[in-house]
């Protein structure tokens, strides 16, 4: 899922880099973000001091030729005034080493800031991070927290065209728009090119996000733990049956002619609902029913044995 509403701009970029694929092997065409990184950024934003307009930090992750996967992030100290910007490099290095020790696969891929305004300082910070990630490009992720009035929460990612790379390629004419801006190449002059960004997490982690999403929608923003397996199962079955109802109303509407049928939807329905259930019908159901009951029985037997054994240990004194 792409994050944020500005997907139209993003698509333009990805197609243009597709045209020039013969010379942009190092430019990321897709950035994926793990929820942890996003949540850390939000937490950092919450904990900013009053004097800070925005917060910045380092993004860690892995990279392939065309794709960058942001897996985590940490906060970095910085200060911005109207005259200067300072990033605590010492702090950044220490934190990186600490993270690297725990998770050696994750390397620095770029930096984040909150708020979606790009300015001269962004270019300077980008310059600093490009040195950290050399020879690769650093990416920049701008997270708009939506905390200010009139702004929606969204996430944008940018890559900067590295001028030196372009000069090596004969076809760099295609990319004249991304050459350094200004008469002389200076670190504070550059173009941030939008790159499509997606939220990505492992399937096994989804239940955690589901949990957080339910928590977020509850009125007190809290939920109790642990939730019984059966409760979650019940919820899922309910939502499946809701979906079936929805499909049923749609199909009925098509049959009675109230609504024009969509062939694509019809094929999807055919594929999904026509799934073979032969296994279940040919006595497979009873067999696995017995297996499951057996397992349930065994589990309870073992548990009571363990309990008895623990109690016996208490009485076995002589």
């Amino acid at each position: 899922m792409s994050l944020g509403p500005s997907s139209s701009a993003i698509h333009i970029q990805s197609s243009s880099s597709g045209d020039g694929s013969h010379n942009s092997s190092r430019a990321p065409t897709k950035i994926t973000i793990h929820p942890v990184a996003l949540f850390s950024i939000l937490d950092h934003y919450l904990r900013r001091t009053d004097s800070q307009d925005r917060v910045i930090g380092t993004l860690l992750g892995t990279r392939t030729d065309t794709e960058i996967e942001v897996k985590s992030s940490f906060a970095v100290l910085h200060s911005e005034t109207s005259e200067q910007v300072a990033v605590d490099m010492e702090y950044h290095r220490t934190m990186y080493e600490l993270h690297h020790k725990v998770n050696p696969k994750e390397v620095i891929v770029g930096w984040y800031s909150t708020g979606s305004n790009l300015n001269t300082y962004s270019a300077l910070i980008q310059n600093f991070y490009s040195q950290e990630t050399a020879p690769h490009q650093a990416i920049h992720v701008a997270v708009n927290t939506g905390a200010e009035e009139g702004q929606e929460a969204d996430v944008k990612a940018y890559a900067r065209r590295v001028p030196s790379k372009l000069s090596h390629h004969p076809c760099s004419d295609n990319f004249s728009h991304s050459a350094p801006v200004g008469v002389f190449p200076k670190p504070e002059n550059c173009i941030f090119v939008p790159v499509p960004v997606e939220l990505r997490f492992h399937d096994a982690e989804r239940s955690g996000l589901d949990l957080l999403a339910t928590t977020a929608t509850s009125s007190t923003s809290t939920t109790g733990q642990p939730i019984a397996d059966l409760e979650i199962l019940e919820r899922s079955i309910h939502s499946v049956s809701d979906m079936l109802d929805r499909v049923l109303t749609y199909v009925r509407a098509v049959l009675t002619g109230e609504q024009k049928g969509d062939q694509a939807i019809g094929r999807y329905l055919m594929d999904t609902l026509g799934a073979s259930t032969d296994d279940l019908e040919k006595g497979g159901f009873n067999a696995s029913l017995q297996d499951t009951l057996m397992i349930s029985y065994l589990a309870n037997l073992v548990r009571s044995q363990a309990e008895v054994s623990a109690r016996l240990a208490l009485t076995a004194a002589s």
Partner: peptide
């Protein structure tokens, strides 16, 4: 208990 702060909730 699990809690999400308002910012996270809105996000």
């Amino acid at each position: 208990k699990i809690r999400t702060n308002p910012l996270l909730s809105s996000f």
